[in-house]
Computed example of a mutant assay.
Amino acid sequence: MVTKGSCMCSQIAYEFSGEPATTALCHCTDCQKWSGAAYTANVVVPRKDFSVTKGTPKTYDAIGDSGKVNKHFFCGNCGSSLYTELEIMPDVACVKSGGLDGGAANHEVKVEFYTKDRLGYAKEVPGADQVTQFGQ
């Protein structure tokens, strides 16, 4: 199975093979700034199964709560968030669900990360694991 995605203007395209390792919402303040929303919605996939197939994303490095680098990849033309590679999770890419094609963004949420930073109006997803922050 191959899942494809792209930015809003289609200058950047990517794909991953197989099933995601997990699906997650991240409520950390970094993701709030990154998305301009209460959280990011992600499919977490092995880096070895993920590739950019068109264009070259721009990057921005932020230091996360962990003290480690969160490398954000985005389209330099339309600004779409594409994926994040976290130093704290070196074997996976966190692909932003909204860019997935063919309804693939409509997935079950299995875990919510950084619930300590969850905004008051964002309610817990029933059945999803709740992780206060990485390492806890």
Rank of each mutant, 00 (worst) to 15 (best):
K96S: 12
C75H: 01
G67E: 01
A38R: 04
G99T: 14
D61W: 06
C78D: 05
A128H: 12
A41T: 13
C26K: 01
S10F: 06
K71G: 01
F113V: 01
S97M: 15
H72G: 08
S81W: 03
G127K: 07
G55K: 15
D117E: 08
A104L: 06
K116L: 08
F50T: 04
G98L: 04
P57F: 14
Y83H: 11
T132N: 08
H72N: 10
G5I: 02
A128E: 12
Q130D: 06
E85H: 07
A37W: 03
T53Q: 04
Y121A: 06
K33M: 10
D30E: 15
I63T: 15
L100W: 04
S97N: 10
L82N: 02
K123T: 10
T22M: 10
M8G: 03
V44N: 00
K33N: 11
C78P: 00
S81G: 07
A21I: 15
G5L: 02
D61E: 11
E87I: 01
A38F: 06
C28H: 00
A128P: 08
G67K: 00
I88P: 00
V2P: 09
M1T: 12
F134E: 05
Y39A: 12
V92Q: 05
H27R: 09
F113P: 00
N70C: 12
V111E: 03
F73E: 01
S17I: 08
M8Y: 15
Y39W: 07
A62F: 14
A41F: 05
V131G: 02
G135M: 02
S80L: 00
F134V: 09
A105R: 08
S66P: 00
G67A: 03
A93M: 04
C26T: 08
G64S: 08
K123Q: 12
T84D: 04
G127F: 03
S97C: 11
V92P: 00
C94E: 12
F73Y: 15
P46G: 08
R47L: 14
C9F: 03
C78Y: 03
E124L: 11
I12E: 02
P57E: 13
Q133Y: 13
K54D: 03
F134W: 14
P57M: 11
D129K: 13
T22G: 06
S35Q: 11
E85W: 00
S80H: 01
V92W: 03
A62V: 14
A41S: 13
F113S: 00
V125S: 05
N42E: 11
A21E: 14
D91P: 01
P57H: 15
K54L: 07
V52N: 01
S80A: 11
K71A: 09
Y60D: 09
I12C: 01
A24D: 01
T3C: 13
V2Q: 10
E108I: 09
G127T: 10
A122R: 04
A62E: 13
S51L: 07
V2T: 13
Q133E: 13
K48Y: 14
G5T: 04
V109L: 07
D129V: 08
E124A: 12
V131Y: 00
F73N: 14
Q11S: 14
